[in-house]
Design a protein around this nucleic acid. Sequence first.
DNA 1: AACGGGGCCAACCGCCTTTCC
DNA 2: CGGAAAGGCGGTTGGCCCCGT
Length: 298
Amino acid sequence: MGRPPCCVKAEVKKGPWTPEEDLMLVAYIQEHGPGNWRAVPTNAGLMRCSKSCRLRWTNYLRPGIKRGNFSDQEEKLIVHLQALLGNRWAAIASYLPERTDNDIKNYWNTHLKKKLKKMSAGGGGEEGAGEVKTRAAAPKGQWERRLQTDIHTARQALRDALSLDPSPPAKPLEWAAATAAAPSSQATYASSAENIARLLEGWMQPSGGGKTTPSGSRSSVSVLSGEAASASHSGGAAPTYDGSTVTSKTKDEAAGAVTAPPPAFSMLESWLLDDGMGHGEVGLMDVVVPLGDPSEFF
DNA sequence: AACGGGGCCAACCGCCTTTCC
DNA sequence: CGGAAAGGCGGTTGGCCCCGT
């Protein structure tokens, strides 16, 4: 309502970032690491608001960002995840560690939306194949929706990981591998699914071993060498540390959990897989049934 | 060669959630 | 426990660039 904008100061600069500003921001983050964005502008000597700094870092300067064309595989994965999760770009981005949610969102809006519309023009409805507006607009609390999709995501991923689905999505969600291999962990949502598994792990196995593959939950920030910032907006080589989406809350949990299934797995497994096998029965809390296999679009 | 239209992408805006005091 | 602040997310916009006419 009457909430003031985040940047009320008149002297806050807006618009495109200059290489100098980029340099200042990167230099600061290299030294202090991302986080505490409120302090970043003043400490880094930037006339930007904290949000702008965070956005610039996560969408552009953060090492490990892949830019340019999306591969066919990425495209299919996005379509699949969009059908599964709706317009939750951050969640989708967590499965594509090298892409930012902004990138994915842009790509969806500019390419995929049209593509799907085109493809569904023959036998499709108005709303376009991939749209899940109805679900997104469901009068449920965001928290609940999120939980539901997380649960579903966990199920889906588990199904994929176990290769029980005879017609797997474009690429098995790759997330197990991704989370295991890439310490990157833009894992806000991926880790949400992981957290579910982990919670259940703890629940079913109180004496449990805890973290399975800590694989550097917080890798070095110094991955971005000086020249990376200097104009070459191509990002680094390896996905490394996302300081923005991995908040203090999740970054320690980002690795593991799903990488190695808990021993007492069968119960969890059967529950998670229920939805995929059973079709139609109502789960823990009337989990939303995802749209059909998006591979049909291709 | 000039112009117009469309595409693309970086950045902003506003709302919601989470955390802190 | 409640309010304020900070962080995070999705939708939207503005401007640049490319391509077709």
